[in-house]
Write a protein that binds this DNA or RNA. Sequence first.
DNA 1: GGGATAGTTCGATGATTGTCGAACTATTTC
DNA 2: GAAATAGTTCGACAATCATCGAACTATCCC
Lengths: 100, 100
Amino acid sequence: MPDYPSPDMADVDLVEVMKALADPIRLHIVRVLADGEPKAKSLEGWGVDVTKSTMAHHFRILREAGLTHTLIDGRRHEIQLRRAELDAKFPGLIAAIVGE
Amino acid sequence: MPDYPSPDMADVDLVEVMKALADPIRLHIVRVLADGEPKAKSLEGWGVDVTKSTMAHHFRILREAGLTHTLIDGRRHEIQLRRAELDAKFPGLIAAIVGE
DNA sequence: GGGATAGTTCGATGATTGTCGAACTATTTC
DNA sequence: GAAATAGTTCGACAATCATCGAACTATCCC
């Protein structure tokens, strides 16, 4: 059983968050996740034309920066924006980049 | 008379803005400029320990991303955050990263 | 167990980035 | 005009990054 740890929100750094958001694919992912509901990582539905390994890379960057959690259900993974925690730590940030 | 053009706000791209903000020195500069008042580029006062050429590089990135204007007064340059325009185009973004 | 499916990790590659010192441009002052 | 001042531009360098294909791990299903 693999483990995909997200950092404590107390350790999340705004510069790292900004780096994670400074990429068109990751910004798109965050927008799709903006409602805070978990979404499957499976390729169909993201609408970006990159390989599985590239998507895995972007998911990892988002998670390690503290933006997302990974939920494991068998061989299916879901990704979830840590919306409430992020809103508490950086008020208005997600809303601003999502465009409300 | 050198010219330091800033892009039209209509052409400013959020991904480029995020890239510009995804650096500790540039984030610091933007925070210092947050009130929208122009500040001298001269090294004293920024409180960052890098060379003049590195600062010139960061000022250029901020300007080309559309975040700042450069004001020229003789051999003195001032830099100004385009606060009102940015607030209109990306509501809440500057406030969020400045930590209002 | 064997095959299929979902996703990660590894190594490589080319592009971009932050930094510096040196040279350069423009302006002010003597 | 010469010297000093403020800032930019130009290589160069090391580090980081986005991307890919191949190999790998883990799970589900027959």
